[in-house]
Computed example of a mutant assay.
Amino acid sequence: MMKNKRVEDDTLFLPEEIIRDILIRLPVKSLIRFQCVCKDWRNLFKTPPFIADHLCHSNRQNPYILSQRDHLLYDSYSDLYYVGSDMQLWRFQNSPLIEHLNYDKIVGSSNGLLCVKTNRLHRSFLLWNPAIKEVKLVPETDFRMDGSCTIGFGFCPSLNDYKIVVTFCEHYYLEMVKVYSLRSNSWKEVKYRLGACGMFNSVIVNGVMFWWGYKKIRKDHCVYFEVVIFSFNLATEVWTVIPMPEQHSSTVYQNLMVYEGKLAFVYFEHSAIHLWIREEGVGASGETWNWTKKFTSNPYPSGELFPETMWENEIFCRIWDWDSESTTTVLFNPTTEKFKNLNISKCDDKHEIFNYVESLVSVGGTKSVTKFLKRGAHLVECGQ
């Protein structure tokens, strides 16, 4: 470990490891400004270990809820808002690209990167880090992306890669799966044998992507539809079907989340929130996993709760109040079993919700919106 050193003018120099420890705690905006302090700092901010440590600290201390207007209810999607730990609502204005996001829709968020489905460029996506103002145009896919598609986006730690997973259903049955890799900057088709006929609300845990959905089963010469969870390992690209918790009965007020680093299934039933987590280990019938019920909340006094996401180990919920016929937002703390009213209008049922954290992660794109827009225009003109 380096020791403090004094020069002739008695200026105090901090050890490099202390300086680094201070820097990883600063917001991205400050780090961008500090790049001009010296060449060593500018190079440090681009190193993978520093980027990873800064991201780890941001995930613990500065997570946000990101809100975008629902694409089914508005002609423009560009209004973005975020809520921080101060519970204040802020307009998302820190990137000039925001002005060009009309008719584009955020479909995923991971480690500070936003996956944006763009309607301006045919069958394509953008990968965007708003904090460092960097954007990358993803090569287009070879099939249409409409309401029958489900899209997942996330990070694979073992490959150090970000992937977009697009599933396409035809007549309610899964017909095609395409996967994009940021490292290879290319798409490929992935085999599946799922019997899936509907997939919803993707979430990623330790490099595995999960959806809840419906699986077609045949029994006694009849066809049934069973609610299950589909998993896709981003490293091995292998699909698995996981049964729901035994006590679960299908409800529209349900969602998949990440709770304490594990897959969680949360649903609202009989005026209470129920949370199950997926534990690794051998279950009763020999599986390598099992479901454990974490808690059932006290009854909520009025309204219907829809659990949206986990935010700092609290469940972010939207509530439909039958008396006032309006939507409000609350946080439910599983430890204290208390509800906290947020009353954030920009997170109501007209907005889509994502977890978000600022980071230095690069998408390998451009920081010039002008160059990006020219590139997009070139693709359209060439019919690519």
Rank of each mutant, 00 (worst) to 15 (best):
L55W: 05
E140F: 08
C317L: 06
T366M: 11
N255K: 03
C222K: 11
L66W: 03
S324W: 11
Q68S: 06
D75L: 14
I229H: 00
F13G: 09
I319F: 02
C347D: 05
G195Y: 03
F354Q: 01
F92D: 04
L360C: 04
I18L: 15
P96M: 08
M176D: 13
V238F: 09
L331V: 04
P48V: 01
V166W: 00
H351Y: 09
Y180P: 00
L360R: 01
K29D: 13
N201V: 12
D142K: 09
I204L: 05
K117E: 10
W41S: 05
D142W: 05
K136H: 09
L256R: 01
V203E: 06
I229L: 09
Y356F: 15
E189K: 07
F125W: 07
V330F: 08
I132N: 02
P157N: 05
P130N: 11
L55F: 05
K219N: 14
I242K: 01
S368E: 08
G365F: 13
V165I: 07
W320E: 12
S109W: 08
K293L: 14
P63H: 06
G364D: 08
V227K: 07
V83A: 01
P48W: 02
Q247I: 12
K293H: 10
S67L: 07
N333W: 08
Y82L: 04
R120V: 15
F125G: 00
N160H: 09
T327H: 03
N185V: 15
L137M: 12
L234H: 02
G383Q: 04
S78K: 07
